[in-house]
Amino acid sequence: MRIKVETRQDGDVDVPRRFCLNGDQVDVFEMVDQWFGADYRYCKVKGSDGALYILRHDELRSEWCLTMFASERAQAVTAGWNSPSQSAIVKGVLQ
């Protein structure tokens, strides 16, 4: 999903500062990780809403896309997964 991202300069690269998702503005609270490819870059960020996002920047097209989203609730639930039986219980709760 393409999204509009406002960036800031961090050394030699632009990093996400905030972005719009479904009409809502999400400020980047923390840059968790980033990794590079030949013509793209992925940024794993924590939003001001507590959710985790992975944003992909296509360097050639200068476009940003959302590739992964995990809400704060989903992160809390999955953090407690220690065994397959707990995973099945949690999965049933979320459905």
Rank of each mutant, 00 (worst) to 15 (best):
H57M: 11
S48E: 03
R41Y: 01
I54Y: 06
T78N: 02
E59G: 07
L94R: 13
R2G: 09
L60R: 15
V26Q: 07
L94C: 05
W81A: 14
F29V: 04
P16H: 08
R56A: 09
K44R: 08
A88I: 02
S87K: 07
P84Q: 04
K46S: 09
G47P: 02
V26W: 06
Y53V: 01
D27T: 10
V13C: 09
M1T: 09
R8M: 07
I3G: 01
G80H: 12
I89M: 06
R61M: 12
W81Q: 10
M68D: 11
D39A: 14
C20R: 15
P16K: 02
L66C: 03
D33W: 06
A51L: 01
K91H: 01
R61P: 00
H57G: 04
D10A: 14
D39G: 11
T78R: 03
R18N: 13
L55V: 08
V28N: 00
E30I: 01
I89K: 00
G80T: 13
D58H: 10
E30V: 04
V45T: 03
R41C: 05
E6V: 12
S62I: 03
Y40F: 08
N22V: 09
S83A: 01
Q95E: 14
G23Y: 01
N82Y: 11
D39S: 12
G47E: 01
R2K: 10
G23I: 01
S48M: 03
A70Q: 11
A88G: 00
K91S: 02
V15N: 03
V45N: 00
D58F: 12
D27W: 13
D33E: 08
D33M: 05
Q34G: 08
R2N: 08
A74F: 08
R41G: 05
A70K: 14
R41T: 05
Q9Y: 07
D12G: 12
D10M: 14
E63I: 12
S62C: 10
A70I: 12
V93R: 10
V28H: 01
V32Y: 10
S83N: 02
V26F: 06
S48T: 07
R56K: 15
V5E: 11
V15T: 10
G11T: 06
R17K: 13
L21M: 14
V26T: 10
D58A: 08
C20W: 15
D14H: 04
